[in-house]
């Protein structure tokens, strides 16, 4: 699927999830996010960690509610707010698992190229830095140095930052040595924009717009207060947000 179609799905589904606390909308939306993520995933790692974070979000938000004066209503409201956050996380996780930073980068029009490049590089440098941080932590622990608290900071941060700087310079040099920014670019693998992509983008835009309209009008039982009240129109909008999963004849 084209990256733009995928992006429009993520934005519409994320918007819908952020707007509602009605469990009858959140549940199918969460299921749709999981399905989209697992059917289009290039790499299931992010989906798994985001799913874990989602479960934690619900549990933590509910647990926090137990700290104050507890009533059945306040507990349910907290759980639903946790669920809303969880579904947003699932959508982000699905997009993360299914999108290709390289392809996204090449989509950026020439003038935005530098910005897109920065984002794409950050996406690829982040895991390397995290890995380096884990190794530094381990190495300092073996030396017997503390690895938590602010006193541990120099021993952990200095090596990570310095090796990170060196790697960033290596990368910048390697890009320059391969002609980055020398003139107008061409594309090796243009991503074809097909009728399916157009359909998904349109469907998602309509679905997202549906939720936005319901929020603005205060209609359709979009708030938890209206739980139990479900509008057919919004269920239809939800259906549109599953469009990346619709069967499509192969050419």
């Amino acid at each position: 699927m084209h990256q733009v179609a995928l992006l429009s799905w993520a934005m519409a589904a994320g918007l819908a999830a952020a707007l509602t606390t009605n469990p009858f909308y959140l549940a199918p939306l969460g299921a749709a996010a999981l399905a989209v993520g697992s059917s289009l995933a290039r790499d299931r790692g992010p989906l798994r960690s985001f799913a874990l974070a989602a479960a934690l979000a619900v549990a933590l938000r509910t647990a926090l509610a137990l700290l104050g004066p507890v009533s059945r209503g306040s507990l349910a409201a907290a759980a639903l707010e946790g669920a809303r956050l969880a579904v947003v996380l699932l959508v982000v996780g699905a997009f993360n698992a299914a999108s290709d930073p390289g392809a996204l980068l090449r989509l950026a029009p020439g003038r935005w190229h530098e910005l897109a490049l920065a984002v794409s590089l950050a996406l690829s440098i982040a895991p390397r830095t995290a890995e380096a941080a884990a190794r530094v932590r381990e190495a300092q622990r073996l030396r017997g140095l503390p690895t938590s608290g602010w006193r541990a900071l120099p021993a952990l941060a200095v090596p990570v930052l310095e090796t990170g700087m060196e790697e960033a310079v290596t990368l910048a040099e390697s890009m320059d040595a391969r002609g980055h920014g020398s003139g107008p670019r061409t594309r090796y693998r243009p991503e074809p924009w097909g009728p399916r992509d157009a359909l998904v983008a349109l469907a998602c835009a309509a679905g997202g717009a549906g939720f936005l309209a319901a929020e603005l009008l205060g209609a359709g039982g979009i708030d938890a207060a209206g739980a139990g009240h479900v509008s057919l129109a919004l269920l239809g909008a939800l259906g549109l947000l599953t469009s990346p999963l619709w069967p499509w004849p192969r050419r």
Binding site: S124, S174, R178
Partner: peptide, 21 residues
Amino acid sequence: GASFVLDRVEDELAYAMENLG
């Protein structure tokens, strides 16, 4: 390892040529 810009091997090979148009 620190010099790769893109994720797929084939794209990485094409990167320099894309830059040069």
